[in-house]
Design a protein around this nucleic acid. Sequence first.
DNA 1: ACCTGAACACCGTTCAAGT
DNA 2: ACCTGAACACCGTTCAAGT
Lengths: 187, 187
Amino acid sequence: MRYRREEIVVRALEVLDAYGLADLTMRRLGTELGVQPSALYHHFANKQTLLAAMADELLRRASWPAEGEWVDRTVAICSVLRDQLLAYRDGAELVATVHSFGLGGGEPVDLLEKALAEGEIGELAPTAVRTLLHFVYGHAVDEQTHLQAAEVGAIGDAPREGDSGDDFAVGLSIVVAGIQVIRATRP
Amino acid sequence: MRYRREEIVVRALEVLDAYGLADLTMRRLGTELGVQPSALYHHFANKQTLLAAMADELLRRASWPAEGEWVDRTVAICSVLRDQLLAYRDGAELVATVHSFGLGGGEPVDLLEKALAEGEIGELAPTAVRTLLHFVYGHAVDEQTHLQAAEVGAIGDAPREGDSGDDFAVGLSIVVAGIQVIRATRP
DNA sequence: ACCTGAACACCGTTCAAGT
DNA sequence: ACCTGAACACCGTTCAAGT
């Protein structure tokens, strides 16, 4: 069987969702595709590049909000991002890992930059975007870890004080409120 | 040679600082200690437990601020935390990783909880602490990745718009300002 | 262009046995 | 209590050779 790059990414996302990031090995993916692991290196320079392509594809599959006032849109983009990260097993860890080795977070980053540009916070926009992303990625990774730990069996695992979606909403409102404050008090 | 748990952690932190997290393997650490890798399993149940002990020790070595008004103290704790993460090669990634598999972030978490308790934000305190930690860990991991990439040789690597310490200060002020806002508008 | 087969240089972890 | 030796079941990646 012969594959194109895009088909491999699609299959890799299926393997991720079914078995998790730890079991997404080049060897396992090769087996799943009926191909030697070394064949994958014809399509991707290394595993990192494959993971980056997977993260981009995962993010591309969401429906991103493009309308509304900049504050509402910022909140909406972050919420869709979180939902999309949680929609795939280890999705948050995948995207956070790819982001951490500096390969750009795909579509949501551009959208957040545009939204904050409209907010007229000027030179502070890049910092604000990164602050939002740190929150969303960090929160989603935490949440996914706990959700999956609960599934496995350590269920009495500190079930969070309030509602769990609520915690995200409150944390996000903290960051967004902070952005509005520095917008008002900027030089 | 025979070792105690604490000596192994100290040596492991030296290996981390000298060679980085990717090269901190049980085999390498064994070699460094003049011992078989399997000997380490007499002291630690697995590698995760060792990493958690390393993170705790790394954080324990900072001088944590204990005085001042709650807002100032919150900012001070986060700044010391960031400095301490950056003080060891891959220190941010180590602590973030340990945190991500749910093993408690050591001293700074307790200190932040106390500071925010004094801020009288009530039930929102845990959310606020986590939001701060997501920012500090995320920012420090990013910064350390870029610093180390620059050291290696990809030096023209997007040198950040403003000063680099400044970016942390601005991001932190966003989160702290946001905490003060929800404090003022809480039910 | 895409894949095989085989190898290289590693991993974390377990476990009987030693002192 | 602490360690050795050997094994188990894996990794990512390279590279000549095949079609």
